[in-house]
């Protein structure tokens, strides 16, 4: 289980990295944390001619507040996001989700840009980028451009980038919310999710004013459930509300099955998680589990 032969370059600027990818003529691959790429290389499932290592580009690692948004550099490690007080206070759903991202050793190396680019349908950060309507700043040979998260994920393990593009940073709008929840079920703690849901609500005295819902582990990409969000707007908050939400979610998603869980079981889990998530989101802050 050794990778096929490749050339290795370690640029120290984004410009140089993009140039290296361009020179590779579509045969280049970007190395960030390497937590998914290295196994793929070792299995020879991917065989780039050139590996462009981003780890020497210092400017890609940061977390900063920009007005009503939080910007995260693409090379920022999961562990840094997990431990950031800024993330905890401004993006609490992300903060809650980070401890579900694999295991500590993986979080120490894995990066947000790498996770988004890898586009695993059962990974937390791609789903969160949909929930938050994040925008990805991408640099290619013709300069920088912005891609909305909802346009980024094309299929399982497939994003919309060109071969010479590099994700450089991601901006997450801070949500106007007074309730939220993140729920996930995995075979073991740290495994890829069998099903997961993230919910953010802005509630009034007796109704939902606004809501956001994203799910993962059930389809080829993470999903933002905008239809469900529309149905929630103005809905009365009562004891039946979490059950109704669960029904809305399961009727808007048709889960995939695989070796670990059948479609029926994933659908069941999603319904259960949706109910639990809405209960949590509607609970007063002091009652949070």
């Amino acid at each position: 289980m050794k990778p096929a032969k490749f050339d290795y370059v370690a640029p120290t600027t984004v410009d140089a990295a993009v140039e290296a990818l361009r020179a590779a003529n579509g045969e280049g691959k970007v190395l960030a944390g390497g937590q998914s790429l290295l196994p793929l290389l070792n299995f020879r499932m991917t065989r780039p001619a050139v590996l462009v290592d981003l780890n020497g580009i210092r400017e890609l690692s940061f977390i900063e507040l920009r007005g009503d948004r939080v910007a995260i550099g693409a090379l920022t490690r999961h562990r840094e996001i997990e431990q950031s007080p800024l993330i905890a206070s401004k993006l609490p759903v992300m903060a809650a989700a980070m401890r579900h991202v694999a295991h500590l050793a993986i979080r120490n190396r894995g990066t947000i840009g790498g996770s988004l680019s890898h586009a695993d349908p059962a990974a937390e950060l791609p789903m969160l980028s949909l929930l938050y309507s994040a925008s990805l700043s991408v640099q290619g040979p013709s300069g920088r451009r912005t891609i909305a998260a909802e346009d980024f994920f094309v299929d399982a393990l497939t994003n919309c980038l060109e071969p010479e593009d590099i994700v450089v940073e991601i901006e997450f709008p801070i949500l106007q919310q007074n309730g939220w929840a993140f729920e996930e079920v995995a075979r073991r703690f740290g495994d890829f999710a069998l099903a997961s849901i993230a919910v953010s609500v802005r509630r009034g005295a007796s109704t939902i004013k606004d809501a956001r819902v994203a799910v993962m582990g059930v389809a080829d990409t993470p999903l933002r459930l905008k239809e469900v969000e529309g149905q929630l707007r103005g809905i009365a908050i009562d004891d039946q509300m979490p059950d109704r939400f669960s029904e809305l979610v399961t009727s808007s998603v048709s889960a995939n099955g695989d070796l670990h869980a059948s479609a029926e079981y994933r659908q069941h889990l999603l319904g259960q998680l949706a109910r639990r998530a809405m209960q949590t989101a509607l609970a007063a802050e002091s009652d949070r589990r």
Partner: peptide, 16 residues
């Protein structure tokens, strides 16, 4: 063999 890697062949780890 469908469960040929440790992603798909699930063993108990310390928390389990």
């Amino acid at each position: 063999l469908l469960s040929a890697s440790l992603v798909d062949y699930v063993i108990p780890s310390a928390p389990e």
